[in-house]
């Protein structure tokens, strides 16, 4: 009988097929989502009945922002340019894209005349640090603990954890973080109430500074890790219970493969695959959650910047943050999607 499906023979032709079947659709999706998101951002202010410039000014006044007449004129000029109100909608639309490509989101009103991208740059490291560490921890911890809880679903600790997750999971970011703040910062006073560091501290690379920053980030980070972890825990537990029933797990058990190997290489490793896709799909929500949590703890990242923009009616800043976020999140999703084949050989070859 001839050797069928010679593996070496098949691998050769698959690189191109992989690019065609996996890579290109994702790149197309990436650019289309950005295109769609930015287009939405462009049209949203134009869908309201009144002139967006006047509308924005009204909003700022309604928020009680004081502006002297000189500033006001500059803002009107900037707004008119930003919205590119000269010319047809199509001209305006292209002008809008042109500015975005130069990384120019216009000028902030509430910290006039600082440019929006400067403000974003200042806030970004805080958000990035918080977001990356908490997402890493919640994903890793949630999946490992959830995986074990799914494999040992009959154990009592697994049931206890499941109940905890059932209680935490449905709470929106705001309510959960707010509850943590009330409990741990006001009632028992273990952690600082707000901010990213002690007021008046200057940024330096001293141990004192790092310690202070870390100390202030404990509560927001804890909130994000617990809430995000609970979601990961529950989905992972469920996936593991399904994977557990798969033939290859049963077969390994019948083969007397040691339990530690089965749990790690057979159950959890396979259950992680949908969790990677799941992470990509939920990055938008995780990001929004981080912004909301920052607002609760007045953590000096993009969330708090957004909050300040909202209460001062700084539409440019909100738009800048939104546009930036669309780019950041879709890019992050693309990166996750591109690493997926590393974990799943079925996508790599075939």
């Amino acid at each position: 009988m001839p050797a069928q499906g010679d593996p070496v023979g098949r691998k050769e032709g698959s690189a191109l097929a992989f690019v065609k079947r996996y890579l290109i659709p994702r790149l197309i999706q990436y650019f289309l989502v950005i295109f769609l998101g930015i287009t939405a951002v462009f049209f949203i202010p134009r869908m309201t009945p009144n002139d967006p410039v006047q509308r924005t000014l009204q909003e700022m006044k309604a928020r009680g922002s004081y502006l002297d007449p000189g500033t006001m004129d500059e803002i009107i000029a900037d707004l008119t340019e930003m919205y590119g109100l000269g010319g047809s909608w199509l001209d305006q639309y292209f002008a809008f894209w042109g500015r975005l490509f130069q990384g120019d989101f216009g000028v902030s009103f509430f910290q006039f005349p600082t440019r929006v991208n400067v403000l974003i740059n200042i806030a970004l490291p805080w958000t990035l640090g918080l977001l990356l560490t908490t997402t890493f921890f919640s994903w890793t911890l949630g999946n490992i603990i959830g995986g074990l809880a799914g494999y040992y679903a009959r154990r009592s600790w697994s049931r206890v954890l499941d109940t905890v997750a059932m209680i935490v999971r449905p709470l929106p970011y705001y309510i959960f973080s707010f509850g943590m703040l009330l409990l741990l910062a006001y009632v028992v006073r273990w952690f600082p109430v707000s901010g990213g560091m002690e007021i008046g501290r200057t940024v330096s690379f001293s141990w004192e500074f790092i310690k202070d920053v870390l100390w202030h980030s404990v509560l927001p980070a804890l909130s994000l890790v617990i809430l995000g972890g609970a979601v990961m825990f529950q989905t992972m537990k469920l996936i593991v219970q399904n994977v557990n029933a798969e033939n290859f797990v049963q077969y390994a058990k019948l083969g007397g493969v040691t339990e530690s190997r089965i749990v790690g290489k057979y159950v959890i490793r396979n259950a992680l695959l949908p969790q990677i896709t799941g992470l990509a799909l939920s990055l938008g929500q995780i990001f929004s959650g981080a912004l909301i949590t920052e607002i609760v703890f007045s953590y000096p990242g993009l969330g708090t910047l957004l909050y300040n923009a909202i209460i001062t009616g700084d539409y440019n800043l909100i738009m800048g943050i939104t546009v930036f976020s669309i780019f950041a999140i879709t890019t992050a999703i693309l990166i996750v999607d591109l690493t997926y084949p590393l974990f799943d050989p079925r996508v790599r070859y075939n």
């Binding site: 290859f248 049963q250 077969y251 019948l254 190997r261 290489k265 490793r269 799943d344 050989p345």
Partner: peptide, 29 residues
Amino acid sequence: ISYVPQGSMSVLNPVLKLKETYQDFIFSH
């Protein structure tokens, strides 16, 4: 005593090279 399963499609761990599956079975014993 060992065992040959019915459907061979789904009994092998899809994310492991066959070498690794063989190793798991050997090293466990």
